[in-house]
């Protein structure tokens, strides 16, 4: 019984030692990597200096842009270009006489050879007797 107890004690000790050897350093390295890699990236980004280069001497010194030029370039020219493009877009529809407003009636009533009062004279006008004709759709 004493011998068997001794073997059990030895076996337990060996097993514990083996486990600590295989997991301890690896876990330490992984923990270190998790900490230092993001810190390194963040630090390099924060500490990075902007790239600077001297302007070549052969280049001319640019003239300072006045307020009027800046105003023309940034505001007036784009607005004029927008107006021209819009006009070119809606011009064909205007020439054809189409309605551009979404709330407007699609077409205006036109009556050739009708009464002078137009549709206002329809009040109380019943269909003529013995009228004929035909209907169609397309």
């Amino acid at each position: 019984m004493v011998g068997s107890r001794h073997r059990e004690d030895t076996l337990v000790a060996v097993t514990t030692k083996t486990f600590s050897v295989t997991t301890g350093p690896v876990r330490l390295v992984r923990s270190s990597l998790r900490l230092f890699v993001p810190l390194g990236i963040l630090g390099s980004v924060l500490l990075a200096a902007p790239a600077l280069a001297e302007r070549p001497e052969a280049w001319e010194t640019p003239e300072s842009v006045g307020f009027l030029d800046f105003f023309l370039l940034v505001l007036v020219f784009p607005l004029v270009a927008t107006a021209v493009i819009t006009l070119l877009t809606i011009l064909p529809a205007l020439v054809k006489g189409e309605k551009l407003s979404p709330n407007a009636a699609p077409i205006e009533d036109q009556w050739l050879g009708g009464p002078k009062g137009g549709k206002a004279e329809l009040e109380g006008s019943d269909a003529a007797k013995n009228a004929g004709g035909a209907s169609g759709q397309w």
Binding site: I107, D109, Q110, W111, L122, A127
Partner: peptide
């Protein structure tokens, strides 16, 4: 006599056309 109406009809198109025709000077 010929008369041409081009526009939006109101209600039943046949009835509307009949009322337009009746409003002409000489419907017959």
């Amino acid at each position: 006599e010929f008369s041409v109406f081009r526009g939006i009809s109101q209600g039943d198109p046949r009835v509307f056309a009949g009322s337009l025709h009746a409003a002409l000077a000489a419907p017959d």
